[in-house]
Design a binder for these strands. Structure first.
Lengths: 339, 339
DNA sequence: CTGAAAGCGCTAACAC
DNA sequence: GTGTTAGCGCTTTCAG
């Protein structure tokens, strides 16, 4: 089947040790004659020798494997993060094993276990987000772990997240500046860090103007389009005077659009709408929505850098929480209202 | 660091072979006493034993690894395919190594080589598409290989592709039915199977009506937005009487939209537009475009099934070319024109 | 400058 | 029922 080092050595008429050293560019170091080195290399090439990474891994105790854990690879947000890590890993000669947890913690735990059994050298995970115990255990065992997107407050783990709070605050202030006071909030999954940080930013924005947060203006229970759709209906029924909606995800916003369409209210003429971007396809979207855009590439790249650093230098990162800036893109889905 | 089988065996007061057999559920087979089996299992659990997949792979000559090669993981089309394969693999206890070739054949060859060195047991590849020699060589060596999306005509490799030809023909007929005769074609990358099959479908649609294909109505050189944009400008300048455009990709169509906007022509009032979907986000897109939709999930799942089959049954698939049906979604971006 | 041999962690003959 | 041992393919002391 596959050609082994021994076969190369035999064909070249040398011992396996010489073959190994020649092929690993350590001929100098071991003072192997140029002729034998060349000869080994050419016969290896002729036989199409591919050193077995498996054997290599066993011997060196280095698998050259990095694990990437995402809840849904078909979501461009996570796919982009996986991509950045993959590209960085390829650069450094590592390979990436990607697993998809389908948004369930049980799968996450099982799959992470399998990754560990494969002797991965680092782990990048976009956690489902309920619990971090199994992840910090891994961290404690000495394996570099980086969390992306959904983190945990006060975690000892290295985390990379967008500055949800600042983004939400900015968006809130923009709405307030335009005179909006009755703002419906379409939130995502409560309890997750992105959602709760966005809520915190919202509160901060209101507090800045000495305004209180009216919890009856809050609706929604996850980041899906359906949640946005149903929450919009509920909120507009509950509060006739709502002039603006703040959606915590793009699907939430799309649901809102669908609902408002049904209700005969137009965006932005009759109702302003601002959203948080989870996906990098914003430019292609249906309505030019004003949005707090996440820098997905920066998220992925930061995670990749953090991993790369630890893989090479093996020094743990000084900074625990890495915050990636968001930026507000004003596409004019917010109208001025008179007070 | 990590606990080995020997440590478990010692702790349980048995030999490694007994430990191995107990843990692999072959106690029955080797008639190991229930007590020892239990004892081994509990001590293993207590020590947190994780069998080294690396050692296992070396010994069994089975890595449990599947390689997935895509040109751009941040593209939802390829991400979805990768996902389906990943989920299927996880189901069967395999893990997936994903590599991103950044659309260049050189990377593709290099990365596939690395995958082989890792002793992968199967390979799913969305090829860049210029050459298949390195891929068929792998096939010849006995490794299950499945090509997805971009295939090669008359290849001996197993391929899974959308029925581009039928889809293009359907779209063409739809345009002709609406009275269009001067139809501008915004093509993608010439020479790739999807592009050329779509051209073939177009020709077939025209031939059906005894119409000739006017090559001066063809423009574009890749699947990007820019190509669509420039081609639209060129075509509309060249042929004043064009009443419809057929874009071969969603980005192509978006480019067309941008160009027509600049030219003050509205879709569909002044100009009809039909497109081919490469991405699963069509419902969220800017204009309700009539489109030939690819079933990305079916593409991925078919590939996954083909791999799974060969991995378990080890029987080569009887069918070489697997064609996934497309379906036309009429969102009314085509207007009737009088002849 | 080169070779023999140990051993990474595991499984499977082959003994007893 | 259980233990001993060879060996997967590779790197690396340690001897020449």
């Amino acid at each position: 089947m596959s050609v082994t080092l021994k076969q190369v050595a035999d064909a070249a008429g040398v011992s396996v040790s010489v073959a190994s050293r020649s092929l690993n560019g350590r001929a100098r170091e071991y003072r192997i004659s140029e002729t034998t080195e060349k000869s080994v290399k050419t016969t290896a090439a002729k036989l199409g020798f591919q050193p077995s990474q498996v054997a290599r891994s066993l011997r060196l105790k280095r698998s050259g494997l990095v694990g990437v854990v995402v809840p849904d690879l078909s979501n461009p947000f996570f796919a982009s993060i996986a991509r950045e890590v993959t590209l960085a890993a390829e650069q450094d000669g590592y390979s990436v094993i990607v697993v998809d947890t389908r948004e369930t913690t049980a799968n996450e735990e099982k799959l992470v276990g399998q990754l560990l059994a494969r002797q991965i050298e680092a782990l990048v995970v976009c956690p489902v987000g309920q619990t971090q115990d199994h992840l910090s255990a891994i961290h404690d065992s000495g394996l570099p772990v980086v969390l992306v997107d959904r983190g945990f407050p006060d975690s000892k783990l290295t985390q990379v997240t967008s500055n949800h709070r600042a983004g939400a605050q900015q968006a809130t202030e923009l709405l307030l500046d335009h005179g909006h006071r009755l703002i419906g909030i379409l939130q995502g999954l409560p309890g997750t860090l992105p959602n709760d940080e966005r809520l915190a930013g919202l509160r901060a924005g209101l507090a800045q103007r000495n305004l209180d947060f009216d919890t009856t203006l809050l609706a929604g229970d996850n980041f899906s389009e359906r949640s946005g759709y149903e929450s919009t209906h509920a909120l507009l029924r509950r509060h006739r005077g709502i002039t603006a909606l703040f959606a915590f995800s793009t699907p939430n916003a799309l649901g809102a659009l669908r609902a408002t369409l049904e209700l005969g209210r137009r965006v932005p003429e009759d109702l302003s709408l601002v959203t948080f971007d989870d996906i990098p396809f914003a430019d292609f979207m249906s309505v030019p929505l004003t949005t707090v855009a996440q820098d997905v590439t920066a998220l992925g790249r930061t995670a990749a850098d953090l991993i790369t650093q630890q893989l090479s230098g093996s020094k743990p990162p000084r900074l625990k929480n890495h915050c990636v800036q968001v930026h507000l893109i004003n596409r004019n889905s917010i109208r001025e209202v008179k007070r």
